[in-house]
Simulated assay, not measured.
Amino acid sequence: MTSDADLIRLLHERHGALLWAVAMRTTADPGRAQDAVQETLVRAWRHVDALDESRGDPRPWLLRTLRNVLIDEWRARSVRPEVLVDDVGEPDLAVADHADAAAQAWVVDAALARLSPEHRAVLAECYYRGRSVREAAAVLGVPPGTVKSRTHYALRALRLVLEEMGIGV
């Protein structure tokens, strides 16, 4: 049985780099990113049942938790009064919030990896490359009806995989 310190250390070793990258891309501030990652790991420690490997990869849960931590931090900062100063330095460049997009991309990539090659291919052509059924059929070398049925079954399979991963669709 592992101790709490071992669990946090293991989580940080396995997932810390991804959490740090997402937090830094979102905040562009090392201090805020470090705080967000630490808070995410504390929440993971409090909800160790969500990290049970029999339930699947814990990364989607960790990324969703990081996203919530970053949103909570942003909301807390947005309700504080702004401090005005006379000394105006260089303009503060706003950084777009990419945490949600990064987390979604990782989860979708992990889910797609669990689909059959045929289902992945048809989803890639129709959704990622924006091809019509006829165009996708030409690229894949199958009839348009096959593209339609594969797309239908691929989306059903993707939904099941996402539900297994703990992502509500």
Rank of each mutant, 00 (worst) to 15 (best):
P58H: 11
R32H: 06
R32N: 04
W74Q: 13
A110S: 12
W106D: 14
M1W: 00
P30W: 01
C126M: 13
P81F: 00
E39N: 12
W74G: 12
E73A: 15
A96Y: 06
R59S: 13
Q104W: 08
R131G: 02
G130K: 06
A121Y: 05
L123A: 02
D29M: 02
N68H: 15
Y127R: 11
P143R: 13
W61N: 02
P58S: 10
I8V: 15
P143H: 14
L115V: 00
L66N: 06
L70E: 11
L140I: 10
W74E: 13
S3K: 01
D35Y: 01
A157Y: 00
A28V: 06
V147D: 07
W61F: 15
L70H: 12
D97P: 09
A121M: 08
P117E: 05
H119M: 08
W61D: 02
A50L: 13
P143T: 12
E135H: 02
G130Y: 03
R129E: 14
I167P: 01
A138V: 10
L41S: 02
A157D: 14
W106M: 12
H15Q: 06
D35P: 08
A157Q: 07
R75I: 03
A33D: 07
Q38M: 10
G166P: 08
R32W: 00
T146I: 06
A99S: 15
V108M: 14
L7Y: 03
W74S: 15
S149H: 12
L158C: 05
R159G: 12
L51N: 03
A17Y: 00
A101C: 04
R59L: 15
L51W: 01
E73Y: 02
Y127C: 09
G168T: 11
R64V: 06
E125H: 07
A99G: 15
T2W: 05
Y128T: 10
H47P: 00
P58F: 10
V142R: 02
R150F: 02
P91L: 02
A33V: 05
D87G: 08
V133K: 04
S116K: 00
D72I: 04
L41E: 04
A99P: 09
G168Y: 03
P91Y: 04
H98Y: 11
A17I: 03
T26Q: 07
A44D: 06
D72H: 09
Q104C: 11
T146S: 13
A103N: 10
M24L: 15
G141E: 03
R150M: 08
T40W: 04
D109V: 00
L112M: 15
H12C: 09
R159S: 13
T2C: 00
A33W: 05
A136N: 08
A102V: 04
D35C: 06
R80H: 12
A137W: 02
R32Q: 13
A113F: 01
L62R: 04
P30S: 07
A101L: 13
R64L: 09
P60E: 11
G56H: 03
V122M: 06
L158S: 06
